[in-house]
Design a binder for these strands. Sequence first.
DNA 1: TTGAAAGCGCTAACAG
DNA 2: CTGTTAGCGCTTTCAA
Lengths: 344, 344
Amino acid sequence: MVTLADVARHAGVSASTVSYVLSGKRSISAPTRERIQHSIDALGYRPHAGARALASSRTDVLALMMPLRTGLYVPVTMEIAMAVTTTARSHGYDVLLLTGEEGSEAVRRVEGSAVADAMIVMDVGLDDPRLPCLQEAERPSVLIGLPAETAEAADATGLDSVDLDFGAAGARCVEHLAGLGHTRIAVLGEPPAVYERGTGFAARTLTGLRAAAGAHGVGLLHRPVEGTYAAVAAAVTRVFEERPGTTGLVVQNEAAVEPLLALLRHQGRAVPEDVSVVAICPDQVAVHASVPLTSVSVPAQEMGRLAVERLVARLSGGAPRGTELIPPRLTPRASTGPASASVS
Amino acid sequence: MVTLADVARHAGVSASTVSYVLSGKRSISAPTRERIQHSIDALGYRPHAGARALASSRTDVLALMMPLRTGLYVPVTMEIAMAVTTTARSHGYDVLLLTGEEGSEAVRRVEGSAVADAMIVMDVGLDDPRLPCLQEAERPSVLIGLPAETAEAADATGLDSVDLDFGAAGARCVEHLAGLGHTRIAVLGEPPAVYERGTGFAARTLTGLRAAAGAHGVGLLHRPVEGTYAAVAAAVTRVFEERPGTTGLVVQNEAAVEPLLALLRHQGRAVPEDVSVVAICPDQVAVHASVPLTSVSVPAQEMGRLAVERLVARLSGGAPRGTELIPPRLTPRASTGPASASVS
DNA sequence: TTGAAAGCGCTAACAG
DNA sequence: CTGTTAGCGCTTTCAA
């Protein structure tokens, strides 16, 4: 194995000089720097991560705690993970993957064993046992998803977090439909388990939906559904029975999208002539659906990227703190149209 | 921070004794061991990962190189990743997540900087630039997916690998349909990009399908498709035009499953009365499809688990090498039935 | 059964 | 601008 000492000898300088060339923490004359760089390349030197961690108490590793729970939509999670790792690499960090199963023990392990410099925590619940550990921790962390019902309450926890503004997203959907003249709207939500475990995003969306519905004077019906064809069929059928005049549908459940479209086709309800559909889902899902969907996108990439960038900023001293909500972006596609059409 | 020296002092022993209690590499008298253990708990001591890595040249970290390419089915990838991390943790290892983008540079980094003890590489192509690096590497690695067209050729590379026996899986599908009396079968395959980049599994499946078709005297038509409704509709429509008597369908493209079922429903072809469908996909997809599908499951969990266990075995001296193919398991569900039914 | 001591490879004062 | 030196916290011979 090639060590820093080998490089120093080869270049005829001291070890510290080599170290400083690597870190750039002090100015080195051009000739020696080049000579050292040449030796590094010639010997194929790579700094030993463990040694560096021991001496500098920095690991250049970020820990990513991923959920592994029921009702979670895998592609979004994966996209965030990928965005996290690529962004992290671009800042010189590696990513350590931790599953949610270990819970707060994992937080303590990262902290105690100096395995990572900071951590990103996904899918936090409102009463998540990891939160207290994170608050006490020396190392910085960022949550993806808010640890509270509102941004203010989230700020009050003292923890950093990044998320889509789901409340505004819900409102945006209703506004869009209301603007097209729809007055009766149904919401197909996440599976019941998601609401029950207090993962804020679903609740916040609902709050936004209801507020906007109130403001625009439209009727709103909310139905949590599992992402299976049978469950969607049952829920939608009941909705049309209970509220015959329903012409607008909001879907916040990626797995339910295709089943829903298949069902509507099957029932002979045309989209958007008879029913307008707005989804809250990743763009990819919306674009590739059998009817391209008007949607508020869940910006998975941006969430991952933002989380890393905040962490990197905090690790380098700059310390932007608090809650950051990403404003929703609604893209009109083929699945929504004026309500008047349905009357004809 | 609590160090091993602190624990030693607190327990009134030498540092090495504490170290040996932790590693179990030499026998310690019951009383001292208990005393030390007590000090460890009392002080909340955690060994410093970097220091340990430096002194022992073991990191207790496995690197996982994930693909990030077009046409890959995310849930399977994610399931493997989760199985890898949970299995790894159960053996005392952490998992470092690397994206495929870095390519062979990542392999060298892991090797050179001693970032991980071993690596798991997913989605290897036949002429993957990472393969030579892995062959030269000191540290062991396991591929998920074969680095060659056949198991023998994969063995010849000298690299360890784990995969579903896709050839046998393809054959199993044809046998099942042939056994039900179907004589004209069409295959909806992965997107063209998957075949083009030489990711072995799709090609191996096709080989198995064709061999079995030959052996059973059934006609086989193969169509790569993108996982969109439009693409599936076009492909299937053409199949039925070109080969009117087609009654059996094999799908190896998770994203195409729902579009396919929706289309058949739309065209008035009943499953399985008019058309039998067999899928090669994760059980979860098969079970939750709008028609529960007869399928050969892609055992994502098992693949991840096996990969880790081989690596752990090799790291601890035991060295089972070579290619390991998981035999396919076909589960009959509601989507297949006798061909005679279609005639009536 | 236990201790003492020499590193592992790198960083960061402290000197010049 | 560069070198000297003392660790970082742990493992592991070598001695007792």
